[in-house]
Amino acid sequence: MHIAFLLPEYPHEKLPKSAGIGTSTKNLLKALVDKGLKITVFTYFQDVQEVFQDGDITIHKIKLRKYPVLTWKLNEGIINKYINKIIKKDKIDVIEVVDWTGISANMNFQIPQVMRLHGSDTFFCHLEEREIKQANFNREQKAFQKANKIIAVSEFVAEKTNSLFASNKEVTVIPNGIYMNDFKPNTTKKVDGTILYFGTLIRKKGILELAYIFNELIQKNSNCQLLLVGNDAKDAKEQRSTWKIFQEKLSAEALKKVNYLGVVDYNRMKELINEASVCVFPSLAESFGMVTIEAMALEKPFVNTDYPWAKEIVEDGETGFLVNPKSHTEFAEKINLLLTDKELASNMAKKGRAAAIKRFDITKIAAQNIAVYNSLVGAKL
């Protein structure tokens, strides 16, 4: 079976920096290849037209053509025509598209299409109480309605998307996953008192709430330190560095105990997780928390947001703590509890890893995806 993926991003040195969609998809694609599937990736709006290999995965970079007017619409046609040519030449059976900005809304493929809900622009605007861009909404709703099958990474994003698009489409929920063999705990590397946040420095991930949380924590425990790792995003409200805004919200005492490393490679990131005492995920808007399952797999205690998507991953008080990120004092208290009660932290971390192995092993999750693709192969459109 040959499956194609139409993606805005993919983690590779020949492509621009990738975020959550790219990382989670690459994990899945590697697992599908391991199970004998042939995989092709189409990445759009790129700087050059190019085809290259990432191991057994074929990557097509589709160049963005710029025009005085109608750039998006004209590029839709170019992308659609190019993909249909490759579908025919390489005998692709099914194509998977993403919900983000509804890139496939006006495209017609000769084969069935699956849409995976990672969280559309409409979805995130709704969660963040920002104005929804009408053009994006129209495309996303149209693309959602025309997909032959829908997969969602969480129950929350499935239900919310159906509601936002005034739909009742059947959705198969399949969580993201990771290779558990790539995430092996190393308790000998722990640095006492280090609290780790990893992910994009952006308002929707609760990074500004974390500044207030750390202000509270440093008053309770002056021996701790906060380490931030990830890309610094331009803040949507203030149009400037989120890292700069974060620093301005810290107390003088807290500021002395914060270190920001910027972006590090994947292997170094796993080392930093292993070295940390506690991880923190105060996100305000999410469809699924990849960082959470990575921390669980590395047997790391953590305090997570208590928003709906997190409740699908974490059992509060058992595999991690769930706290409203805007409840700064309570969030700080839970972090301090994990820093000071070593037995509690260790037991919770072990339960977290066991849960991750059981529920988020990508080799098991790949089989669920294959079942969806199989249901469409040979289907009449």
Results as ranks from 00 to 15, higher is better:
residue 346 S to H: 14
residue 197 Y to M: 00
residue 314 V to L: 02
residue 359 R to W: 09
residue 305 T to M: 01
residue 339 L to Q: 03
residue 96 E to F: 01
residue 343 E to T: 15
residue 224 C to E: 09
residue 364 K to I: 06
residue 205 K to T: 03
residue 30 K to D: 12
residue 181 N to T: 14
residue 133 K to Q: 13
residue 212 Y to R: 14
residue 68 P to F: 10
residue 225 Q to L: 06
residue 169 K to T: 05
residue 113 Q to M: 14
residue 98 V to L: 13
residue 11 P to D: 02
residue 40 T to K: 03
residue 60 H to Y: 15
residue 237 K to F: 11
residue 242 T to M: 00
residue 257 K to Y: 00
residue 302 F to L: 14
residue 82 Y to I: 07
residue 245 I to V: 05
residue 197 Y to H: 05
residue 193 G to E: 02
residue 3 I to N: 00
residue 317 G to Q: 03
residue 171 V to T: 07
residue 71 T to A: 05
residue 234 K to A: 07
residue 215 N to E: 00
residue 108 N to M: 02
residue 10 Y to P: 13
residue 253 E to F: 12
residue 276 A to N: 01
residue 325 P to S: 01
residue 59 I to G: 02
residue 31 A to H: 11
residue 132 I to C: 12
residue 198 F to I: 05
residue 129 E to R: 15
residue 334 K to R: 12
residue 127 L to H: 04
residue 314 V to M: 08
residue 163 S to F: 13
residue 205 K to Q: 04
residue 335 I to P: 12
residue 301 P to M: 03
residue 316 D to K: 08
residue 232 D to M: 05
residue 129 E to Q: 15
residue 336 N to A: 01
residue 340 T to Q: 15
residue 31 A to D: 04
residue 253 E to K: 15
residue 231 N to D: 10
residue 305 T to L: 00
residue 219 Q to K: 15
residue 265 D to T: 00
residue 349 A to F: 12
residue 115 M to G: 07
residue 127 L to C: 08
residue 17 K to H: 10
residue 31 A to P: 10
residue 149 K to H: 03
residue 41 V to D: 02
residue 329 T to W: 06
residue 102 G to V: 13
residue 86 I to Y: 02
